[in-house]
């Protein structure tokens, strides 16, 4: 049997203490295989964003077990989590979150550059290749602030793929785009999933976006309900 890409068991997350304590995740279980393209669905406050944040190693669960690529991440140190995140996980946020003072190409190669401490020619080549695939060959040297919303989000997707991560977590990646731009972004994600086998977990409220994914994961009241 093939080892899953990620596996979370009995995941709990509580914010606050005492009377103010709020349980967001309540014993959530989830397994994802390599190459999946999944939509994470659920009403606001159901725990989708918290789950993505924990899966992205940006936050620790209150309890439970979180493994990815066979590594137990719940007991890893901050330094180890940072390195793991850099090598194996990509992020696409609702608001592109590009560095405004940097060009499209500089934004794309950021994940490699912060790890290696410099912008290597290999990283630049990889960044250019990704931007070409995103249809942004003529926008490489544009500052992030001078790109359109759709272009920014495609740059963000390219950045998420820079280190060839096994898992890309996308939190409402098209939530801030018009339909045409949203379709463009989703087509890009779909193509990358099929061509490179990158696993995508996309949090969305949009049924049309969810319909483009091969698996829909429904979260409700802090648990996977379907």
């Amino acid at each position: 049997m093939t080892e899953p890409l990620l596996d979370v068991r009995d995941l709990w997350k509580t914010f606050g203490e005492g009377d103010a304590a709020t349980q967001v995740l309540k014993g959530l279980n989830l397994t994802m295989a390599h190459g999946e393209m999944s939509a994470l669905l659920g009403p606001s406050g159901s725990g989708k964003s918290t789950l993505l944040t924990i899966l992205g190693t940006l936050m620790r669960p209150t309890s439970g077990r979180h493994t990815m690529l066979g590594q137990d991440l719940t007991s890893a140190s901050d330094e180890d989590l940072t390195e793991f995140r850099n090598r194996h996980i990509g992020f696409v946020f609702q608001f592109h979150n590009l560095l405004p003072d940097f060009t499209a190409l500089e934004n794309v190669i950021l994940p490699t550059a912060v790890r290696e401490g410099r912008e290597t020619s290999a990283a630049r080549a990889r960044g250019r290749e990704l931007l070409v695939r995103m249809g942004l060959a003529d926008r490489m040297d544009y500052l992030a602030t001078s790109l359109s919303g759709g272009q920014k989000q495609r740059v963000a997707v390219a950045r998420a793929l820079m280190n060839s991560p096994e898992l890309v977590l996308a939190d409402e990646p098209t939530g801030n785009l018009d339909r045409a731009a949203a379709n463009q972004v989703m087509e890009t994600i779909d193509r990358l999933n099929r061509e490179e086998g990158t696993t995508f977990l996309i949090s969305t409220h949009d049924d049309k976006i969810a319909a483009r994914c091969r698996r829909q994961i429904l979260v409700g009241d802090g648990q996977v309900t379907g």
Binding site: G56, L58, D78, E79, T82, E83, R85, N86, R87, F91, N97, L98, L99, L110, P111, V114, R115, R159, N163
Partner: peptide, 10 residues
């Protein structure tokens, strides 16, 4: 925050 999320160490 973005740099940290992209794996930049402290």
């Amino acid at each position: 925050g973005i740099m940290r999320a992209m794996g930049a160490p402290r």
